[in-house]
Amino acid sequence: MATLDTPTPAAAPVPATLNPLNRRPRDAGRSAVAKALGYSAMIVAAAAILLPFAWMVISSLKTNNQVFTVPVTWIPDPIVWQNYLDIWARSDMTTWIKNTLILSVTVTVLQVVTGSFAAYGFSKMRFKGRDALFVLYIGTIAVPWQSYMIPQFIMLSNVGLSNTLWAIIALQTFSAFGVFLMKQYFESIPEELSEAARIDGLSEYGIWRRIIMPLSVPAIASLTLLMFVNTWNDYLGPLIYLRSPDLWTIQLGLKSFIGQYNAEHALIMTGSVLSVLPVAIIFLLGQRYFVEGIASTGVKG
């Protein structure tokens, strides 16, 4: 490790002329205006992007027959909190959230670990058949799941996995997506770092764990977030595999609660709001790992 030089970005000497603090005043004034403009543009864009979500929240506070009207009513009158109470009181929300959390966390952890492990094999090791195998991985992404889910279901049923959470974990954990994502990221990590570690006598497993993984925090963060969201919002998987109500996930439970003949749109929207919020919080926490400089620490400019 001794030869591994990892200066922090702050320690890197910055030529005085490039330091933003030393810019001439005219630049500073212009950049303040630009900043203000940038912010207002971003706020407008944010409002536009959030519009459907706002409509979801508004609709969840209406009575059912008020949800769809011509023209659209943006202010519910009266405000109905009943939908939220209904869902909490009459449904098994806590069970659904518990199941969904178990699934999301397990799948995400397993996917990140096995996916990045395999990705290291694909990107940093060279052996026969590697590229063909990798194309096989990606190729399966291109096959729509709906078309092979029945054979898969028959298979998992025969080994007794249907109607268990294991089925969903098994299904989601080994997707090619994570392998692909991590492999591409690993390839942008300079080979010199691994080489230096090898000279220091680190094994390949050691390099994966102590060099590559710590440098891949942004990729791990994005894989974690995407896997979490996908598992959280997955509907078709749980629909096919889970039957007993105490195994239901939040998407399955909400859909079932909303029922069939009665188009309870206000409740649908209440459920959607409730199912989005936890994910939004996770995202808010996770996005701070996208900070410039983590991966480039090891590279000398």
Binding site: T114, G115, F117, A118, Y120, G121, F122, M125, R126, F127, K128, R130, L133, L136, Y137, T140, V143, S147, Y148, M149, P151, Q152, M155, L156, A170, L171, T173, F174, S175, A176, V179, E204, W208
Partner: peptide, 30 residues
Amino acid sequence: KLRNTLIGWSFILPNFIGFAVLTLIPVFAL
């Protein structure tokens, strides 16, 4: 070279076994 291949596979296998059983076989069935 052999050692290299073995190490490479040892990285890939944990994911590949699950992938082969759960995805590849059904895809071949398809």
